[in-house]
Amino acid sequence: MSLTTSFLGLTLQSPVMVASGPASHDVNQVRLAEEQHAGAVVLKTACSDKYEHMRFWPRPRYKLLDWDKQMDGRSKVFSLYSYEQGYSGTLEDYWKFIRVSKEHAKVPLIASIFADDAEDWADMAKRVEQSGADAIELDISSPHKPGSLGFETTFVAAIKAVMGAVRFPVLVKLAPSPELLHQCRVAEECGASALTLCNRLRGFDVDIETQRPILHGNFAGVGGPWAKYYTLRHVAEAALVSKIPISGTGGVMSGEDVIKYVLLGATTVQILSVIMVNGWESIARINKEIEEYMQRKGVTSLSEIRGKALQAMTHPEEIIRWSGEPKSGSRNLWKETGEQE
């Protein structure tokens, strides 16, 4: 029995990867992830120089919504509401960050970038490749991305430009939306090596006492354990149509959640919130929970169960339905009207 997962030509010691964010902003964090046997680390997204303002983070930048003080990190209903921005250093710092991380850790590193012009995307991707990262994730769906940059208008060109500029694997990170499936197809057609599903949604919350939006006063990314239900659906939908591997992410708090993603066709699973609220040990704990499940089910490799639940999905036309007349609609009406059937 082994957690070893083959992803994008890399051999990961676990399907559990650290998602891009505040837990992958620093060399020491990469080593912490490695020590906990993470499969890979997706580094914090670096923004092009044009978006330099996104290297500065507001204070405060996080708020735990619906946080159960009794439950701490064991709660399954909280939301992490955050307006965290991009990597806080310059691009030169970022290339150095990749280089130094690569020197000090063996865990595969996936860099993450954001820009708008296709040219910038290609240049940055090239620098990432030169710096020694094992792959790159194109963060085209950040909940904090500035302006009204659209998928068709900006990011299709970006994916194409990056694909033309580099030779290493390219992941495309997409957000939940009605167009997600279409975007998956387009990304695949452009030559993407894998899909990361899904980014967090942009949310909003208001303080009714002060009658003002909370935190910094604008929309913010919102995610949490509840988010897995729609990402599981998106992963399933995408897995049914795409031939490229999928890295599922969203709301993973335990090994169970990872198994769910794998059963729906994901090759790897990215986690972040759970590390933030429960610590780095969460990675090792989740790995252990997956192993326990595999042992219980007699599974030797996760590839044996990948997509298994997809095969058991029921087509809407085949769902067995009952008329339900005696119980629904104007039920018990005869009592009032005195009519007998």
Binding site: H25, D26, V27, E52, R55, F56, R59, K63, L64, L65, W67, K69, D72, Y87, S88, G89, T90, D93, K96, F97, V100
Partner: peptide, 27 residues
């Protein structure tokens, strides 16, 4: 949000525009 008795309080930035002079994370 983790504090049950609100013992952690907020000291706002003196200057709303306050930013670090350099964005480098000082590798």
């Amino acid at each position: 949000d983790a504090c049950p008795v609100d013992a952690i309080i907020w000291i706002p930035d003196k200057d709303g525009e306050a930013k670090p002079k350099t964005a480098s994370p000082l590798m």
